[in-house]
Structure formats: structure tokens, C-alpha cells
Design a protein around this nucleic acid. Structure first.
Lengths: 155, 155
DNA sequence: TAAGATTGACGGCTCAATCTTA
DNA sequence: TAAGATTGAGCCGTCAATCTTA
């Protein structure tokens, strides 16, 4: 058994540096991707996320609660967001015949056009900003790190 | 010279998987850190970021424009935020004798107490969720990846 | 004219309360 | 009672307009 060095709260010098750069990088990356998509397609990253899930699925419609889980969003957040997207014609609410309480969110033709216009450029930007410079080994290590943190978050 | 494979927009299978997990991890990690700090100290991560910069500096005060750059925030965002933090007694605005247009943000005693209460537990959480499980090599690779993406963002 | 800073309007997110059906 | 979903209040962030001093 190792010493319980977690009682000592502070980060090492290296950890601190990496942590600060990491936070900065996340901020800037999100801002860049967001700007890019907004300019190219008049969609927010959030809109894009919703539309991705709706195109992944038969009939282009999903139960709203299920969508909230997939997006890892609060239900009320999704409800508000769908209202706004509905106003812009990107999605449509449909009632559920199986369960009178429930509802579907369905992608519209306008929504499909929007995501088809946005996806290639977005993928390209992600590649350029994140992946193109990484070696195979770095990519793999990034996957390992991501999984380790996710595992920690689940405990 | 390599083939211009960036013309092909899509991500490889592996890249896609890593990218999705990465986004999920970021969401959850931010949520966890935010929850943790709010419960422990009644500060948001944003409040914490502001206070960190104010404690890093002589007299505990910084020119507002300078602070905005350090935080990578819009000026108006910072101005609104300072207003809210001022209302809660965490910081104070002070006028600048050198430049009549300018102003300082200064940490108060209440602010100092708040950050001193929050910092150890926050550091501990960051260690536990992010760093404790990483090998030295993974930590180093994470630093390299972060720097590579930041470099890309600057071009 | 420009720089430092603030303001108000508006869209986005969270929380607690509410409505409807199971 | 509980589950699916919505609503409204209030805080947060962005954008464009504004105010003051350099």
C-alpha cells in the first residue's frame, strides 16, 4: 500500500503547469469551435450536438428524456433549448402515442440541411486544431487519460 | 511533403471515439469541480479564477483590463462579474490615480477568507479526479498535447 | 480618435415549482 | 406517488452602444 499522499492537497509544479495550460486550452478550443460553427452555419455547438443525436437515429426522432441523457443535459435545459430550436425551424416536437406523458424531438428538413452544411467543416476544424499534429502514440495516450478521468468521475 | 489529407474532412474511427469521450469528460469534470467548490465554499469556478489572480499579485489588486487578459475574458463579462462579486463583498473596485480612465479590482478580507477556504479542497479534488491515476509519462504527454493544440490555436 | 470601462438588451442555463398522465 | 415534460425567476455571458479620460 502506498503512502496516503492525497492528504497533502497541493499539486506538484508540473501538475500545476499542465493544469493551467489545460484549462486555457479548453477555453480557447471551445471558443474557436463555437465561433467557427456560428460563422459557417449559424448553429451553436449545442444546436449541433442536438442535431447529431437526431440524425443518428431512425425517423430522426428521439424521446426527449432519452435525448437529455445522451447529451448529459438537465431536462429543463433541453426543454428550453428545443423551444428555441423549434422557433428557428430546426426541430419539431411530436407527441408520443405509447406514453401520453412523453414527447419526441424530431429533426426537420431545415435541421437536416443545417447539420449537413455544418458537419464537414466542423470535422475539418477539429482535425486541424486537435488531431493533425498528434502522433499515434499521443492519440492513444489521450484516449487512456480521458478514460481514466471518466472512471474517476464515476466513483 | 505529405499528402494534403486535410482535404478529407472526416475523423478516423479512433479520433471520433477519443473526441466524443473527451467532450464528455470535459463536461463532467467541469460539472464536478463546479459542484464541489459551490458546496464547499459558495464560490463558482469563475469567482475562484478571479480571486486566484488577485492573490497572485502585490496589494491584491490588478488593473481590470489586465485581469481580463489574464482570465481570457471579455471586458464586459469581467465588469458584470466584478459587479456581482462586489455585491457579495468578495472584491472592491478602486480608482486609479495614474490613469483617470482606469480602475483596479481589489480582493477584500472576505474574498481572501473565501479563497483560502476553497483552495486546498479544490486542489485535492483536481488531484484525485485528474492526476492521481496518471503515470509520469502520461502527465508529460498530456502537457505535450495541450501545448500542441494551443500552438494550433495561435495560428 | 482611441483606450478603459460600464451598461442594457437578450439569449442560455439552473433551480424549484407545476402540470399531466402512468 | 412517481415519471415525463414544461415553466418562470434569476444568474451568467455576449454584443453593441455609451460614457469618460488620454
Amino acid at each position: 500500500m502506498v503512502l496516503m499522499n492525497s492528504d497533502e492537497p497541493w499539486l506538484t509544479q508540473t501538475q500545476q503547469q499542465v493544469w493551467r495550460r489545460w484549462l486555457l486550452m479548453n477555453d480557447r478550443l471551445t471558443a474557436a469551435l463555437s465561433r467557427d460553427m456560428q460563422r459557417g452555419s449559424d448553429l451553436s455547438l449545442q444546436d449541433f450536438g442536438v442535431l447529431v443525436h437526431l440524425t443518428d437515429v431512425p425517423d430522426g426522432r428521439v424521446r426527449i428524456a432519452e435525448l437529455a441523457i445522451a447529451l448529459n443535459w438537465e431536462r429543463s435545459r433541453l426543454s428550453h433549448h428545443i423551444t428555441r430550436m423549434e422557433r428557428r425551424g430546426l426541430v419539431r416536437r411530436e407527441e408520443c402515442s405509447q406514453d401520453g406523458r412523453g414527447a419526441f424531438a424530431a429533426i426537420t428538413t431545415t435541421g437536416r440541411t443545417a447539420i449537413e452544411g455544418a458537419a464537414p467543416s466542423h470535422a475539418c476544424t477539429v482535425r486541424r486544431l486537435v488531431f493533425d499534429d498528434l502522433t499515434d502514440e499521443e492519440l492513444q495516450t489521450l484516449g487512456v487519460i480521458t478514460d481514466k478521468v471518466l472512471a474517476r468521475l464515476e466513483t
